[in-house]
Design a protein around this nucleic acid. Structure first.
Lengths: 154, 154
DNA sequence: CGGAAATACTCAGTGCCCTGACTAATCCGG
DNA sequence: CCGGATTAGTCAGGGCACTGAGTATTTCCG
Protein backbone atom coordinates (compact mmCIF):
# COMPACT_ATOMS: atom_id res chain seq x y z
CA UNK A 1 0.00 0.00 0.00
CA UNK A 2 2.52 2.61 -1.13
CA UNK A 3 0.01 4.50 -3.21
CA UNK A 4 0.42 8.22 -3.57
CA UNK A 5 -2.18 11.04 -3.61
CA UNK A 6 -2.34 12.21 -7.20
CA UNK A 7 -3.90 15.44 -6.00
CA UNK A 8 -0.46 16.51 -4.84
CA UNK A 9 1.11 15.86 -8.23
CA UNK A 10 1.36 19.01 -10.30
CA UNK A 11 1.56 17.05 -13.54
CA UNK A 12 -1.67 15.26 -12.84
CA UNK A 13 -3.41 18.51 -11.98
CA UNK A 14 -2.00 20.19 -15.07
CA UNK A 15 -3.41 17.45 -17.25
CA UNK A 16 -6.82 17.63 -15.61
CA UNK A 17 -6.84 21.40 -15.97
CA UNK A 18 -6.00 21.18 -19.62
CA UNK A 19 -8.66 18.55 -20.25
CA UNK A 20 -11.29 20.57 -18.47
CA UNK A 21 -10.34 23.52 -20.64
CA UNK A 22 -10.48 21.42 -23.78
CA UNK A 23 -14.06 20.36 -22.98
CA UNK A 24 -15.21 23.88 -22.21
CA UNK A 25 -13.57 25.23 -25.37
CA UNK A 26 -15.40 22.61 -27.39
CA UNK A 27 -18.78 23.65 -26.07
CA UNK A 28 -18.30 27.40 -25.70
CA UNK A 29 -15.88 28.44 -28.45
CA UNK A 30 -15.66 26.09 -31.42
CA UNK A 31 -15.79 22.46 -32.42
CA UNK A 32 -13.85 23.20 -35.59
CA UNK A 33 -10.97 25.35 -34.44
CA UNK A 34 -8.98 24.14 -31.46
CA UNK A 35 -7.20 26.22 -28.86
CA UNK A 36 -3.71 25.65 -30.32
CA UNK A 37 -5.07 26.56 -33.76
CA UNK A 38 -6.46 29.78 -32.33
CA UNK A 39 -3.07 30.53 -30.77
CA UNK A 40 -1.49 30.27 -34.22
CA UNK A 41 -4.12 32.53 -35.80
CA UNK A 42 -3.61 35.04 -33.01
CA UNK A 43 0.15 35.07 -33.49
CA UNK A 44 -0.25 35.73 -37.20
CA UNK A 45 -2.69 38.56 -36.55
CA UNK A 46 -0.01 40.22 -34.42
CA UNK A 47 2.88 39.41 -36.74
CA UNK A 48 1.89 38.55 -40.31
CA UNK A 49 4.53 36.92 -42.48
CA UNK A 50 6.27 34.93 -39.76
CA UNK A 51 7.87 31.64 -40.68
CA UNK A 52 6.74 28.28 -39.31
CA UNK A 53 9.47 27.80 -36.77
CA UNK A 54 8.98 31.23 -35.22
CA UNK A 55 5.24 30.74 -34.93
CA UNK A 56 5.95 27.47 -33.16
CA UNK A 57 8.27 29.27 -30.78
CA UNK A 58 5.64 31.92 -30.03
CA UNK A 59 2.92 29.45 -29.15
CA UNK A 60 5.19 26.81 -27.63
CA UNK A 61 4.99 23.97 -30.13
CA UNK A 62 7.83 21.93 -31.62
CA UNK A 63 8.63 21.79 -35.34
CA UNK A 64 6.57 18.68 -36.04
CA UNK A 65 3.44 19.71 -34.21
CA UNK A 66 3.38 23.22 -35.60
CA UNK A 67 3.68 21.76 -39.11
CA UNK A 68 0.55 19.66 -38.56
CA UNK A 69 -1.44 22.52 -37.07
CA UNK A 70 -0.48 24.84 -39.92
CA UNK A 71 -1.30 22.23 -42.51
CA UNK A 72 -4.80 21.88 -41.04
CA UNK A 73 -5.32 25.63 -40.99
CA UNK A 74 -4.12 25.76 -44.59
CA UNK A 75 -6.58 23.02 -45.64
CA UNK A 76 -9.37 25.05 -44.07
CA UNK A 77 -8.28 28.08 -46.07
CA UNK A 78 -7.45 30.19 -43.04
CA UNK A 79 -3.84 30.92 -43.97
CA UNK A 80 -1.46 30.98 -46.91
CA UNK A 81 2.02 29.48 -47.02
CA UNK A 82 4.61 30.78 -49.48
CA UNK A 83 8.32 30.14 -49.88
CA UNK A 84 10.46 33.00 -48.66
CA UNK A 85 12.15 34.35 -51.82
CA UNK A 86 15.03 35.53 -49.59
CA UNK A 87 15.53 32.15 -47.93
CA UNK A 88 14.36 29.03 -49.70
CA UNK A 89 14.17 27.01 -46.48
CA UNK A 90 11.43 29.11 -44.93
CA UNK A 91 7.71 29.24 -45.49
CA UNK A 92 6.11 32.60 -44.78
CA UNK A 93 2.65 32.48 -43.25
CA UNK A 94 -0.16 34.97 -43.63
CA UNK A 95 -3.85 34.81 -42.72
CA UNK A 96 -6.49 34.89 -45.42
CA UNK A 97 -9.55 37.15 -45.06
CA UNK A 98 -11.42 34.10 -43.84
CA UNK A 99 -8.66 33.51 -41.30
CA UNK A 100 -8.94 37.08 -40.02
CA UNK A 101 -12.74 36.79 -39.77
CA UNK A 102 -12.44 33.52 -37.86
CA UNK A 103 -9.91 34.97 -35.45
CA UNK A 104 -12.15 37.96 -34.74
CA UNK A 105 -15.19 35.78 -34.09
CA UNK A 106 -13.32 33.41 -31.80
CA UNK A 107 -11.67 36.22 -29.85
CA UNK A 108 -15.06 37.25 -28.52
CA UNK A 109 -16.11 33.75 -27.61
CA UNK A 110 -12.76 32.97 -26.03
CA UNK A 111 -13.04 35.95 -23.72
CA UNK A 112 -16.46 34.71 -22.59
CA UNK A 113 -15.12 31.24 -22.03
CA UNK A 114 -12.18 32.46 -19.98
CA UNK A 115 -14.58 34.28 -17.68
CA UNK A 116 -16.59 31.12 -17.08
CA UNK A 117 -13.45 29.04 -16.66
CA UNK A 118 -11.97 31.40 -14.07
CA UNK A 119 -15.26 32.20 -12.37
CA UNK A 120 -14.47 30.11 -9.25
CA UNK A 121 -11.57 32.47 -8.46
CA UNK A 122 -11.66 36.06 -7.22
CA UNK A 123 -9.83 38.73 -9.19
CA UNK A 124 -6.78 38.55 -6.94
CA UNK A 125 -6.78 34.78 -7.09
CA UNK A 126 -6.93 34.90 -10.87
CA UNK A 127 -3.84 37.11 -10.94
CA UNK A 128 -2.10 34.69 -8.61
CA UNK A 129 -3.21 31.74 -10.71
CA UNK A 130 -1.57 33.24 -13.81
CA UNK A 131 1.55 34.24 -11.93
CA UNK A 132 2.14 30.87 -10.29
CA UNK A 133 1.53 28.82 -13.41
CA UNK A 134 3.63 31.11 -15.54
CA UNK A 135 6.54 30.93 -13.13
CA UNK A 136 6.49 27.14 -12.93
CA UNK A 137 6.13 26.73 -16.69
CA UNK A 138 8.85 29.28 -17.46
CA UNK A 139 11.26 27.66 -15.03
CA UNK A 140 10.62 24.18 -16.41
CA UNK A 141 11.06 25.39 -19.99
CA UNK A 142 14.27 27.07 -18.90
CA UNK A 143 15.60 23.74 -17.66
CA UNK A 144 15.60 22.40 -21.21
CA UNK A 145 16.80 25.55 -22.97
CA UNK A 146 20.15 26.36 -21.32
CA UNK A 147 19.07 29.96 -22.04
CA UNK A 148 22.67 30.86 -22.98
CA UNK A 149 23.98 32.51 -19.83
CA UNK A 150 26.13 35.68 -19.82
CA UNK A 151 28.04 34.83 -22.99
CA UNK A 152 29.36 31.47 -24.02
CA UNK A 153 33.11 31.48 -23.60
CA UNK A 154 34.67 29.47 -26.45
CA UNK B 1 -4.50 44.38 -35.05
CA UNK B 2 -6.92 42.76 -32.63
CA UNK B 3 -4.41 40.25 -31.35
CA UNK B 4 -4.75 39.06 -27.81
CA UNK B 5 -2.12 38.31 -25.13
CA UNK B 6 -2.02 34.53 -24.84
CA UNK B 7 -0.38 34.94 -21.43
CA UNK B 8 -3.80 35.88 -20.08
CA UNK B 9 -5.44 32.74 -21.47
CA UNK B 10 -5.67 29.99 -18.88
CA UNK B 11 -5.98 27.31 -21.53
CA UNK B 12 -2.77 28.35 -23.17
CA UNK B 13 -0.95 28.41 -19.85
CA UNK B 14 -2.39 25.03 -18.91
CA UNK B 15 -1.07 23.54 -22.11
CA UNK B 16 2.38 25.03 -21.62
CA UNK B 17 2.44 23.80 -18.04
CA UNK B 18 1.53 20.32 -19.08
CA UNK B 19 4.13 20.24 -21.83
CA UNK B 20 6.83 21.50 -19.51
CA UNK B 21 5.88 18.73 -17.13
CA UNK B 22 5.93 16.14 -19.89
CA UNK B 23 9.49 17.10 -20.81
CA UNK B 24 10.72 17.03 -17.24
CA UNK B 25 9.04 13.68 -16.63
CA UNK B 26 10.80 12.26 -19.65
CA UNK B 27 14.23 13.28 -18.41
CA UNK B 28 13.79 12.78 -14.66
CA UNK B 29 11.35 9.90 -14.25
CA UNK B 30 11.03 7.56 -17.22
CA UNK B 31 11.08 7.44 -21.00
CA UNK B 32 9.07 4.21 -20.99
CA UNK B 33 6.26 4.87 -18.56
CA UNK B 34 4.31 8.09 -18.98
CA UNK B 35 2.63 10.16 -16.32
CA UNK B 36 -0.90 8.91 -17.15
CA UNK B 37 0.39 5.34 -17.09
CA UNK B 38 1.88 5.95 -13.66
CA UNK B 39 -1.45 7.35 -12.51
CA UNK B 40 -3.12 4.08 -13.53
CA UNK B 41 -0.49 1.97 -11.76
CA UNK B 42 -0.90 4.11 -8.65
CA UNK B 43 -4.66 3.70 -8.67
CA UNK B 44 -4.32 -0.07 -8.90
CA UNK B 45 -1.85 -0.14 -6.02
CA UNK B 46 -4.44 1.60 -3.88
CA UNK B 47 -7.41 -0.42 -5.15
CA UNK B 48 -6.50 -3.72 -6.82
CA UNK B 49 -9.20 -5.39 -8.87
CA UNK B 50 -10.92 -2.26 -10.13
CA UNK B 51 -12.57 -2.37 -13.52
CA UNK B 52 -11.46 -0.29 -16.48
CA UNK B 53 -14.14 2.34 -16.30
CA UNK B 54 -13.58 3.05 -12.62
CA UNK B 55 -9.85 3.39 -13.09
CA UNK B 56 -10.55 5.87 -15.85
CA UNK B 57 -12.81 7.79 -13.53
CA UNK B 58 -10.14 7.88 -10.79
CA UNK B 59 -7.43 9.28 -13.04
CA UNK B 60 -9.71 11.39 -15.23
CA UNK B 61 -9.62 9.59 -18.55
CA UNK B 62 -12.52 8.65 -20.82
CA UNK B 63 -13.37 5.08 -21.78
CA UNK B 64 -11.36 5.12 -25.05
CA UNK B 65 -8.20 6.62 -23.65
CA UNK B 66 -8.12 4.42 -20.59
CA UNK B 67 -8.51 1.38 -22.85
CA UNK B 68 -5.40 2.38 -24.80
CA UNK B 69 -3.33 3.12 -21.71
CA UNK B 70 -4.32 -0.17 -20.11
CA UNK B 71 -3.59 -2.10 -23.26
CA UNK B 72 -0.09 -0.63 -23.34
CA UNK B 73 0.50 -1.46 -19.68
CA UNK B 74 -0.73 -4.99 -20.38
CA UNK B 75 1.65 -5.39 -23.31
CA UNK B 76 4.50 -4.37 -21.03
CA UNK B 77 3.42 -7.02 -18.55
CA UNK B 78 2.68 -4.55 -15.76
CA UNK B 79 -0.93 -5.57 -15.22
CA UNK B 80 -3.38 -8.41 -15.80
CA UNK B 81 -6.87 -8.11 -17.20
CA UNK B 82 -9.49 -10.76 -16.44
CA UNK B 83 -13.23 -10.94 -17.06
CA UNK B 84 -15.31 -10.38 -13.97
CA UNK B 85 -17.05 -13.73 -13.36
CA UNK B 86 -19.84 -11.80 -11.62
CA UNK B 87 -20.40 -9.38 -14.52
CA UNK B 88 -19.29 -10.44 -17.98
CA UNK B 89 -19.09 -6.87 -19.21
CA UNK B 90 -16.27 -5.86 -16.90
CA UNK B 91 -12.55 -6.49 -16.96
CA UNK B 92 -10.89 -6.59 -13.57
CA UNK B 93 -7.39 -5.15 -13.40
CA UNK B 94 -4.56 -6.13 -11.11
CA UNK B 95 -0.85 -5.26 -11.14
CA UNK B 96 1.74 -7.96 -11.73
CA UNK B 97 4.83 -8.18 -9.53
CA UNK B 98 6.67 -6.33 -12.24
CA UNK B 99 3.97 -3.65 -12.17
CA UNK B 100 4.32 -3.26 -8.42
CA UNK B 101 8.10 -3.00 -8.70
CA UNK B 102 7.81 -0.38 -11.43
CA UNK B 103 5.36 1.66 -9.40
CA UNK B 104 7.65 1.61 -6.39
CA UNK B 105 10.66 2.70 -8.41
CA UNK B 106 8.81 5.51 -10.15
CA UNK B 107 7.24 6.78 -6.93
CA UNK B 108 10.67 7.77 -5.68
CA UNK B 109 11.67 9.47 -8.90
CA UNK B 110 8.35 11.23 -9.21
CA UNK B 111 8.73 12.78 -5.78
CA UNK B 112 12.13 14.12 -6.79
CA UNK B 113 10.76 15.49 -10.02
CA UNK B 114 7.89 17.25 -8.30
CA UNK B 115 10.36 19.04 -6.05
CA UNK B 116 12.33 20.31 -9.01
CA UNK B 117 9.18 21.25 -10.89
CA UNK B 118 7.78 23.28 -7.98
CA UNK B 119 11.14 24.66 -6.87
CA UNK B 120 10.35 28.20 -8.14
CA UNK B 121 7.51 28.47 -5.61
CA UNK B 122 7.69 28.84 -1.84
CA UNK B 123 5.87 26.33 0.34
CA UNK B 124 2.84 28.61 0.76
CA UNK B 125 2.79 29.34 -2.95
CA UNK B 126 2.85 25.64 -3.71
CA UNK B 127 -0.18 25.10 -1.53
CA UNK B 128 -1.92 27.96 -3.30
CA UNK B 129 -0.90 26.57 -6.68
CA UNK B 130 -2.58 23.26 -5.90
CA UNK B 131 -5.65 24.89 -4.43
CA UNK B 132 -6.26 27.29 -7.31
CA UNK B 133 -5.74 24.71 -10.05
CA UNK B 134 -7.85 22.14 -8.28
CA UNK B 135 -10.72 24.58 -7.82
CA UNK B 136 -10.71 25.64 -11.47
CA UNK B 137 -10.43 22.07 -12.74
CA UNK B 138 -13.14 20.78 -10.39
CA UNK B 139 -15.52 23.56 -11.36
CA UNK B 140 -14.97 23.02 -15.07
CA UNK B 141 -15.47 19.27 -14.71
CA UNK B 142 -18.64 20.01 -12.76
CA UNK B 143 -20.00 22.02 -15.67
CA UNK B 144 -20.10 18.86 -17.77
CA UNK B 145 -21.29 16.43 -15.09
CA UNK B 146 -24.58 17.84 -13.79
CA UNK B 147 -23.43 16.24 -10.50
CA UNK B 148 -27.00 15.16 -9.70
CA UNK B 149 -28.19 17.78 -7.20
CA UNK B 150 -30.15 17.04 -3.97
CA UNK B 151 -32.10 14.11 -5.39
CA UNK B 152 -33.60 13.79 -8.83
CA UNK B 153 -37.36 14.16 -8.55
CA UNK B 154 -38.97 11.75 -11.02
C1' DC C 1 35.41 29.21 -54.20
C1' DG C 2 34.06 24.90 -51.97
C1' DG C 3 32.88 21.88 -48.33
C1' DA C 4 31.35 21.52 -43.33
C1' DA C 5 28.00 23.21 -40.14
C1' DA C 6 23.72 25.15 -39.21
C1' DT C 7 18.90 25.87 -40.24
C1' DA C 8 13.88 25.05 -41.93
C1' DC C 9 11.07 21.71 -42.86
C1' DT C 10 9.28 16.79 -43.68
C1' DC C 11 8.32 12.03 -42.43
C1' DA C 12 7.74 7.84 -39.55
C1' DG C 13 6.73 6.23 -35.15
C1' DT C 14 4.66 6.43 -30.39
C1' DG C 15 1.43 8.03 -27.07
C1' DC C 16 -2.40 10.91 -25.20
C1' DC C 17 -7.23 12.63 -25.71
C1' DC C 18 -11.89 13.12 -27.25
C1' DT C 19 -16.43 11.91 -29.90
C1' DG C 20 -19.71 8.96 -32.10
C1' DA C 21 -21.12 4.54 -33.57
C1' DC C 22 -21.08 -0.24 -32.45
C1' DT C 23 -21.25 -4.99 -29.66
C1' DA C 24 -22.08 -7.68 -25.77
C1' DA C 25 -23.81 -8.36 -21.25
C1' DT C 26 -26.77 -7.17 -17.43
C1' DC C 27 -30.77 -5.11 -15.23
C1' DC C 28 -35.41 -3.93 -14.65
C1' DG C 29 -40.38 -3.30 -15.24
C1' DG C 30 -44.44 -5.24 -16.93
C1' DC D 1 -39.78 -14.47 -18.11
C1' DC D 2 -38.93 -11.36 -21.72
C1' DG D 3 -37.89 -7.22 -24.25
C1' DG D 4 -36.16 -2.42 -23.71
C1' DA D 5 -32.94 0.51 -21.25
C1' DT D 6 -28.51 0.78 -19.20
C1' DT D 7 -23.69 -0.25 -18.83
C1' DA D 8 -18.62 -1.93 -20.10
C1' DG D 9 -15.76 -2.17 -23.54
C1' DT D 10 -14.21 -1.78 -28.68
C1' DC D 11 -13.32 0.54 -32.97
C1' DA D 12 -12.76 4.30 -36.39
C1' DG D 13 -11.57 8.89 -36.90
C1' DG D 14 -9.57 13.51 -35.88
C1' DG D 15 -6.32 16.35 -33.36
C1' DC D 16 -2.23 17.41 -30.21
C1' DA D 17 2.61 16.47 -28.76
C1' DC D 18 7.27 14.62 -28.79
C1' DT D 19 11.69 12.19 -30.74
C1' DG D 20 14.85 10.73 -34.23
C1' DA D 21 16.12 10.43 -38.93
C1' DG D 22 16.27 12.49 -43.43
C1' DT D 23 16.17 16.43 -47.26
C1' DA D 24 17.01 20.86 -49.00
C1' DT D 25 18.97 25.30 -48.51
C1' DT D 26 21.89 28.73 -46.69
C1' DT D 27 25.90 30.31 -44.12
C1' DC D 28 30.33 30.44 -42.61
C1' DC D 29 35.16 29.65 -42.81
C1' DG D 30 39.50 28.18 -44.61
Amino acid sequence: MAAVDLGTHPGHLARRLQQAHYLLWNTMVSEEITSPQFAVLNTLVAEPGLDQRTVGERVGLDRSTIAEVISRLGRRGLLDKVRDPQDGRRFLLRLTDEGLRTHKKLTVRTARMNQVFLAPLSAEEQALFFDLIRRVADAAEGLRNPAEPFAAQP
